[in-house]
Deep mutational scan, measured.
Amino acid sequence: SEEELEEFAKEVLRRGITIIVNGIRITEVEIFVKVLREILEKR
């Protein structure tokens, strides 16, 4: 749901943790923004 997305976004921003994806360091915020864009483009 959109509320869950908002909560996830807030949690990500609070933690600001960097994770490893395919050997490249990407912040969770960047991943969230990318996923959010993909979701919005599909609408």
Rank of each mutant, 00 (worst) to 15 (best):
S1I: 12
E11Y: 04
E6F: 15
I17G: 12
L36P: 01
R37W: 10
A9K: 07
F32W: 03
V12L: 15
E3D: 11
T18A: 13
R37G: 01
E4D: 10
E4Q: 11
F8D: 01
V21R: 02
E30Y: 09
S1T: 12
I39P: 00
I26M: 04
I24E: 08
F8I: 03
E3S: 13
V29P: 06
I26R: 02
E41H: 10
R25H: 14
I26N: 03
G23V: 08
I17H: 12
S1G: 08
E2Y: 14
N22P: 03
L13T: 01
T27K: 05
V12A: 07
E7W: 12
I24K: 07
R14N: 13
G23R: 03
A9F: 08
I26S: 03
I24H: 11
V12F: 10
G16L: 15
F32M: 11
R43Q: 12
E30N: 09
I31T: 10
R37S: 04
V29K: 03
E11N: 07
R15L: 14
L36C: 00
K42D: 11
R25D: 06
I24S: 03
I17E: 13
L40R: 03
T18L: 14
E7C: 14
E11Q: 08
T18H: 14
E4V: 12
G23H: 05
R14F: 07
I24R: 04
E7Y: 11
R15S: 13
T27Q: 06
T18P: 13
K10T: 06
E30W: 10
E3M: 12
F8K: 00
F32E: 00
V29T: 03
I39G: 05
I17R: 03
V35L: 14
E38A: 11
V21T: 02
E30P: 04
G23W: 12
K34W: 07
E11D: 11
L36S: 00
R15I: 05
F32V: 05
E38W: 13
F8L: 09
E28D: 14
L40I: 08
S1Q: 07
V29L: 14
R25L: 15
L36T: 02
R25E: 11
E7H: 10
S1H: 08
K42T: 09
E28A: 12
R43H: 14
I19F: 05
S1P: 05
I19A: 01
V12M: 14
I24L: 13
I17P: 04
R14E: 09
S1D: 07
G16S: 08
N22V: 08
F8S: 01
T18V: 15
I39R: 03
E11K: 09
V12C: 06
I20L: 09
E6H: 14
E30F: 08
I20W: 09
I20P: 00
T27M: 06
E4K: 14
R25G: 03
E4F: 14
F8V: 02
V35T: 05
I17L: 13
F32A: 03
T27G: 02
I26V: 08
R43T: 12
G16F: 15
